[in-house]
């Protein structure tokens, strides 16, 4: 049967930063072909296909909260597979190989993580599950 694609509205102008992305204007309507958990979604816009940041897209029917898991304050253990240096105040800087707790998995690919007393956003693509549950 026909495949029904979710339509999303572009919230703000976006200029692509690598080859297979889409340039988008605020108000454009895109159809989502694939939602990658790292926050890049494969979209169709008119005759173009490419990746767009989920952080710039909102569902046509308003915020779709069913999709986004609730925060898990107990945390789930992940290991950093790549270092990242915070650019914004609410982000965390971590080195390669650090064990952290993921508290909230946001669809835009920026997860809320906790390391000791600190919490902040970290790119989900630089995290890998350890498979262990945190000891309470």
């Amino acid at each position: 049967g026909p495949i029904m694609l979710d339509s999303y509205r572009v919230v703000s102008d976006y200029s692509k930063s690598s080859k297979y992305e889409l340039n988008l204007k605020a108000g454009d309507l895109v159809d989502i072909v694939e939602k990658s958990p790292n926050g890049w979604w494969f979209c169709q816009f008119e005759t173009h296909r490419g990746w767009a940041p989920a952080s710039y897209l909102e569902p046509l029917d308003g915020p779709d909260e069913r999709e986004e898991p609730e925060p898990d304050y107990a945390g789930e253990l992940y290991k950093t597979i790549k270092a990242y240096k915070a650019v914004e105040e609410d982000e965390l800087s971590l080195e390669f190989g650090e064990i952290i707790e993921v508290i909230h998995k946001l669809l835009d690919g920026w997860w809320v993580v906790r390391k000791g007393e600190e919490t902040g956003y970290y790119p989900s693509m630089f995290l890998c599950r350890t498979g262990e549950k945190k000891e309470v």
Binding site: S12, S18, Y20, E21, N38, W51, P53, A54, Y56, W110
Partner: peptide, 22 residues
């Protein structure tokens, strides 16, 4: 290739989106 998402982290939400979430 186009089949694989970009290797760089996606941008943080723009101001418009942050206002809507708040």
């Amino acid at each position: 290739s186009i089949k694989h998402p970009p290797q760089n982290p996606p941008p943080r939400p723009p101001a418009e989106m942050r206002r809507k979430r708040a």
